[in-house]
Nucleic acid binder design. Structure first.
Length: 818
DNA sequence: GCCGGTTGTCATCTA
DNA sequence: CGTAGATGACAACCG
């Protein structure tokens, strides 16, 4: 939304409108409105700078901030590509080429002189491979996404395009001096309009162009025709279309009519944009999408026409592309195309995903992509840089989706956004797309609707795309992979449970160690409260499962328990009597319940030890008095059946067996574990679900009480032990502290003695220098120095007891006299 | 058989 | 009032 705000804030909307109007006269209209700083303002932090790292890197390398920032150093880029091997993929996939086209178009449209120098330099810099990429991409984009569908033909076309591209690029490099047909067209247009005023030129030609465009549209431009056109001319067709002002040139490469088409398309795009519905239309019709994309292209071209004025052009471009990203200024267009490729794909993916995720409204992405490719670059630039970009795209798409929002400027932006996003999608998806064309885009869009992941998965799915996808993409995919997140979540849950278990174990102390049982452990007093709350839902589910299990219990585990129980019963004799199958089942259920309960957080968190007895419910319950011999047997059985249960104490088994016996005797339909571990509500529900007599209820409550108290006792003992240990530690620390203090005391005593000694020496020295009134030294026996509180010093006679104040001054004087 | 440790249980208090 | 936790005390069991 912030981005949108940025775009919509203040005069941006007006700017967009003006720009749209500028379809005829971009330069004139924009100039007043486009201060040099506008780019940054409009784009804000999310602009090119925030774009894909890749773009950013290039930007950094070459131009730095501003529009140029997007311009990529082709050499560096190419090198990087080779190194990464991504470059190759980029060449194919890179949507950015569209931008190149736009750039070229701008050149053409623009009076050649305008922005040439910078661009030319860039072109010259660009390695041939890069140029190809641009051209191919541009060609693909222009021919409409249709070209994308034709994967097989793409390479050949690309080659052809490459030639064209070289041609164009050469023109660009030469500063439009070259006689490239396309360039010538553009040059002618620009010249007609006047080198300085591209807009003016355009204006003059517009009417004709429009007419021709309309005618051409009717004749050739039918959507299907676009495909044909694309098939036939690929890049050429694009070039033609792109050259808005160019006269119909006989040049094989660039049909002059195409430029007119572009103009018309631009107009249509503008009109469509003006119409609120267009936004929605993007979704509905590929044609509209194409128009939108074209509109963006037109703006781009206009921007380019502005030529050198990167700022103004950038502004325009930005206004169009804003949602995703702004194109870099003049030069940047070229580079953005290239650079964005990988990132753009990523962005596209994100954007597409986002768009899809946001609303199915924008299935269009693919179709506009062709045209949008130009726009893509910008968008990807913006989007790619930051993960948040996806959100941006979604937001922008949302805006676009709302047809109502389509007021002139907003529409423009929206369309631009849509185009950008779509372009991104198209770049990646165009490959996937079948020759069906625009509609295919819709399909893609639908696929996109699945979510962000879908595009990624799609990319992965396509081998070619995979080639193109960079490691970064992979990383991104992994990062976004929902499965991974799910796994993480699970792991986190596991970890959480483990941690709880750990905490529990900590609580249980030795108990847990000795008796730790994998089976469900009762919730420890500490963890139980919290765990229960968190696990309520799970518990419920488990509970339901448990109930089912009660009814349906079966399986080998059942058999094991049954045998054990039978043995136990034999041992027990008449106490338990013979359990009906139902009861057996219920107990078996208890085992399953254990399993289920084990999954419960609270269950996990709890002490290991005493539940074991719980788990041992299946284990035979022996009369307390009989336990000695039989216990060992039962314990052995337990061990065999439930090794984890095993505890040194058979008493546990006994105890539980006692409750278990009673429960069996009363035919309690659920296990002790459930009785003890279930939360109160569920426990009550459980009791309510079964018709139990008073005796059974009492027993169940006693079992629950004892079970919980058992845990409480364990915890209490553990705490007590902890307290003892803590006290022991405290005692140790206090002992150490005492030793330390004693040492310090000794040290202080030594220091004190030393000080006393030094004081004594000093006293003697001072006293030895004191003289009486006759100048004779004082007799230490008869006199002594007295230090008063006020700091004065006097000589006192030890015999008379009288004191002769002796001030320092006096003493000093005396000393001086001496 | 005694002793120490462990564990379960009960009773009671408290939140 | 009911529930659950905490704790002291008791008893049983084991090594």
């Amino acid at each position: 939304m912030q981005d949108l705000k940025k775009y919509f804030t203040e005069g941006l909307i007006q700017m967009a409108i003006i720009l749209s109007l500028c379809g005829v006269m971009v330069d004139e209209g924009l100039e007043p409105y486009l201060p040099a700083s506008w780019h940054e303002r409009i784009l804000g932090p999310t602009s090119a700078l925030t774009q894909t790292q890749f773009h950013n890197l290039r930007n950094r390398l070459e131009d730095g901030p501003g529009l140029h920032a997007k311009n990529v150093d082709l050499d560096s880029f190419f090198t990087a590509r080779r190194l990464l091997g991504l470059v190759h993929s980029l060449d194919r996939l890179q949507v950015p080429p569209a931008e190149l086209e736009t750039w070229l178009v701008q050149r053409e449209q623009d009076p050649l002189p305008v922005g040439l120098p910078g661009q030319a330099s860039r072109l010259a810099r660009e390695p041939p491979g890069i140029e190809r990429v641009q051209l191919t991409s541009s060609l693909e984009s222009r021919p409409l996404v249709l070209t994308l569908h034709e994967d097989a033909d793409d390479e050949e076309e690309d080659k052809e395009e490459e030639t064209d591209v070289h041609y164009h690029t050469g023109a660009l490099n030469e500063g439009e001096e070259e006689e490239d047909t396309v360039l010538q067209h553009f040059c002618n247009i620009g010249r007609e309009g006047g080198p300085g005023s591209s807009g003016g030129v355009n204006n003059g030609e517009l009417p004709q162009n429009e007419q021709e465009c309309l005618r051409l549209l009717e004749e050739t431009f039918p959507f299907t025709e676009e495909q044909q056109f694309h098939d036939a001319g690929g890049g050429r067709g694009e070039l033609e279309l792109q050259s808005p002002g160019s006269e119909p040139s006989g040049s094989s490469i660039l049909p002059s009519t195409n430029p007119f088409l572009d103009l018309e398309l631009q107009w249509q795009d503008l009109l469509a944009i003006m119409e609120p519905q267009n936004n929605a239309g993007c979704d509905t019709s590929a044609f509209e999408d194409t128009q939108n994309s074209r509109a963006t292209e037109t703006f781009e071209t206009l921007h380019q026409n502005q030529g050198v004025d990167g700022t103004e052009a950038d502004l325009v471009m930005e206004t169009w592309s804003q949602p995703g990203s702004l194109r870099p200024p003049n030069q940047s267009e070229m580079e953005p195309v290239l650079l964005p490729l990988t990132p753009t794909e990523e962005l596209d993916d994100h954007s597409s995903a986002s768009s899809s995720g946001v609303s199915g409204v924008y299935p269009l992405q693919s179709p506009p992509d062709h045209v949008d490719l130009l726009a893509q670059d910008p968008s990807p630039d913006l989007c790619l840089g930051i993960s948040a970009e996806d959100v941006m795209n979604r937001q922008t798409q949302d805006l676009v989706a709302t047809p109502e929002s389509s007021s002139s400027p907003e529409n423009v932006h929206c369309s631009g956004d849509c185009t950008n996003i779509q372009a991104g999608n198209a770049a990646t998806r165009g490959l996937y797309m079948s020759p069906s064309g625009d509609f295919l885009f819709d399909e893609d869009g639908i696929e996109d609707d699945d979510g962000l992941l879908s595009p990624l998965t799609d990319l992965i799915g396509d081998a070619a795309i995979l080639d193109e996808i960079s490691l970064l993409d992979m990383a991104l995919e992994e990062g976004f992979n929902p499965e991974m997140t799910a796994r993480l979540d699970e792991e986190g849950y596991l970890l959480h449970s483990e941690t709880e278990a750990d905490s529990d174990s900590g609580l249980s102390l030795a108990f847990s160690l000795s008796q730790a049982s994998p089976c469900a452990s009762e919730a420890s007093s500490y963890s139980s409260s919290s765990s229960t709350s968190s696990s309520d839902s799970a518990d419920e589910s488990l509970f339901s499962e448990d109930e089912d299990a009660v009814e349906l219990c079966d399986g080998p585990h059942m058999e094991m328990e049954v045998t054990i129980k039978q043995e136990e019963e034999e041992e027990l004799g008449a106490v338990g009597g013979s359990y009906p199958d139902h009861a057996m089942q219920t107990f078996h259920q208890s085992d399953q319940e254990k399993k289920l309960l084990s999954g419960l957080p609270w269950h996990l968190g709890h002490d290991h030890t005493y539940h074991q007895p719980m788990s041992s419910s299946s284990s035979p319950s022996l009369p307390v008095g009989k336990m000695s011999t039989k216990q060992s047997r039962s314990s052995v059985r337990r061990n065999s059946a439930l090794p984890y249960h095993y505890s040194s104490h058979t008493s546990d088994a006994k105890m539980w067996s006692h409750d278990e016996r009673r429960a069996r005797a009363l035919r309690v339909p659920f296990s002790n574990e459930l009785i003890i571990n279930l939360p109160v509500e569920e426990f009550n529900d459980l009791l309510a679900s079964f018709q139990l007599n008073e005796e059974q209820l009492t027993l169940i409550k006693d079992i629950r009480r004892r079970g919980k108290n058992k845990v409480a006792a364990q915890n209490c003992r553990k705490r007590k032990m902890d307290v003892l240990l803590g006290l022991n530690d405290e005692v140790s620390s206090l002992m150490r502290s005492r030793s330390r203090l004693l040492r310090e005391k000794q040290e202080a005593m030594r220091n004190l003695q030393e000080m006393k000694h030094r004081l004594k020496m000093l006293y003697q020295e001072v006293f030895s220098r004191v003289r009486d009134g006759e100048g004779r030294p004082l007799n230490p026996v008869e006199h002594e120095l007295r230090f008063e509180l006020d700091g004065s010093v006097g000589v006192a006679s030890s015999r008379r007891g009288g004191r002769t104040p002796l001030t320092k001054g006096n003493r000093k004087q005396r000393d001086k006299k001496k």
